[in-house]
Write a protein that binds this DNA or RNA. Structure first.
Lengths: 150, 150
DNA sequence: TCTTACTGCAATCACTATGGTTACATTTAG
DNA sequence: CTAAATGTAACCATAGTGATTGCAGTAAGA
């Protein structure tokens, strides 16, 4: 399986990190798609959701593009995740189980609590890292890379 | 979307809870499927994975069926989850990003760390609840139910 | 020994989400 | 007016999921 949740969040975080890295200018969906080795439409779809969530804004027309709507230090990975992945991560039963069964008629409710708490733990961890943290790490890696290349 | 990860874990936890609730006898895949409103083959597939993980065992032939391989208090929800959902829950990029881009060539590695930690937080929460806990909650609900029905 | 009731497993099907792509309308700078 | 960008809708191939059928193997019990 391993299909897990889509890679949308990864794409979004990648894009946000690019916007933060070069926050003196706006980036086009083509430029971001280029770094992702994907295509501009997909990027626009995902950035569109981020815009709805208030994380980025865009300008149309020539010289248009995308920019962060808040400081990178105030955007966490959870913000990106929450803007894209709506449903519960761990899914419960496909159908409601049988109400005839002593276990069946209680299980769904119990699982919802357990799964909700588990997702909350994950969300909390994602909320601890900001886009600014990632930019710092990228820049540090690049400095190290430059040093090694001397 | 909300497709999230499959409901396999939910089915497995449901089945394990049934096996623990009636641990004086073995249950057939048909009985479990009945409670799930699903079908026996699906149950056997999932319980088969749990057997590989050492959580349950089965006997073939007439009067065959399934039983827990360890005490219910020593099986956590994480055990069930880990036996079924192999890949990472949060997936990274579909393709590797461009190595030409300063952000692209670092992002994948950074995201793996973040996502791994986030999943670890979730796993840790799932590991705090055992099947025995769920059975206790089911029995408590049933007692309450009986009281209200008087 | 023969029947019955199980597991084990392969194969198939309908459905859905994803990621990728084309196409085109709209907007804006120059 | 043209070029360069966003905003969308539509479509496609692929893959995973859950459901189902079919059948071989196994073991208990008449």
């Amino acid at each position: 399986m391993a299909v897990a949740v889509s890679s949308k969040s990864a794409v979004a975080i990648h894009a946000l990190t690019m916007l933060a890295r070069w926050d003196d200018k706006s980036l086009t969906s083509a430029e971001i798609a280029d770094s992702l080795r994907s295509n501009p439409v997909l990027v626009r779809r995902i950035l569109g959701s981020l815009r709805v969530a208030g994380l980025v804004w865009s300008t149309e027309g020539r010289n248009g593009g995308w920019s962060l709507a808040r400081p990178a230090g105030e955007i966490t990975l959870y913000d990106a995740y929450a803007a894209l992945e709506e449903g519960p991560l761990l899914s419960s039963h496909p159908h409601p189980p049988s109400a005839e069964c002593e276990v069946g008629r209680n299980m769904q409710r119990l699982l919802e609590v357990e799964f909700r708490d588990a997702e909350r733990a994950m969300a909390q961890r994602l909320g601890q890292t900001t886009i600014a943290d990632l930019v710092r790490q990228v820049l540090a890696s690049e400095r190290e890379r430059a040093r090694r290349a001397h």
